[in-house]
């Protein structure tokens, strides 16, 4: 994974994300989403994430820049994993570095909500009973 990439087919390593702060920043916030063993009451044993990668990369980069500008935080970076994930694997990590904590919380929350609304990534859930389904999501606001 290159430093400025937002999508990866490999396991997400948190240490490099956390290390990328500067001494100007007093607050850091790391959000991670992981594959849960239950969803809506059904036992899950894995996920598959796919994406329309060129647009997903661009949308994630835009969300990071918007978070930085709207909340005046020094850095917002998002990494989303694609491919097959097992229970406990990290699907998404969002790190925000900021001088002050209020902005860090707001920027991080903005970034995860925007990701879920605007980035062409698709989650397919696999259940322990052998069934699989794509989760319903949010319709992109274009070309309807």
């Amino acid at each position: 994974m290159e430093a400025d990439m937002h999508l990866t087919h490999n396991a997400i390593a948190l240490e490099p994300l956390l290390a990328s702060t500067s001494n100007a920043c007093g607050a850091s916030l790391l959000f991670t989403g992981t594959v849960r063993e239950h969803n809506e009451g059904r036992p899950v044993n894995g996920m598959r994430y796919t994406a329309h990668e060129p647009l997903a990369e661009k949308a994630l980069a835009e969300i990071c820049r918007e978070a930085e500008q709207q909340f005046a935080v020094a850095t917002c970076h998002i990494v989303h994993r694609l491919g097959e994930l097992r229970l406990g694997d990290i699907s998404v990590a969002i790190v925000v570095h900021s001088a002050h904590r209020a902005a860090a919380y707001e920027a991080s929350r903005f970034a995860i909500e925007a990701l879920k609304a605007r980035v062409p990534i698709f989650k397919q859930e696999f259940y322990t009973d052998g069934d699989a389904r794509y989760l319903d999501g949010q319709t992109l606001d274009a070309a309807l």
Binding site: H80, I112, K116, R118, V119, D136, L140, A143
Partner: peptide
């Protein structure tokens, strides 16, 4: 957008509701 032109030979991604995260 709804009125974006489509050209011969284009590759068009069809994007259902998104569910990343």
């Amino acid at each position: 957008g709804p009125h974006s032109a489509i050209h011969d030979g284009d590759e068009i991604a069809l994007i259902p509701p998104v569910s990343g995260g």
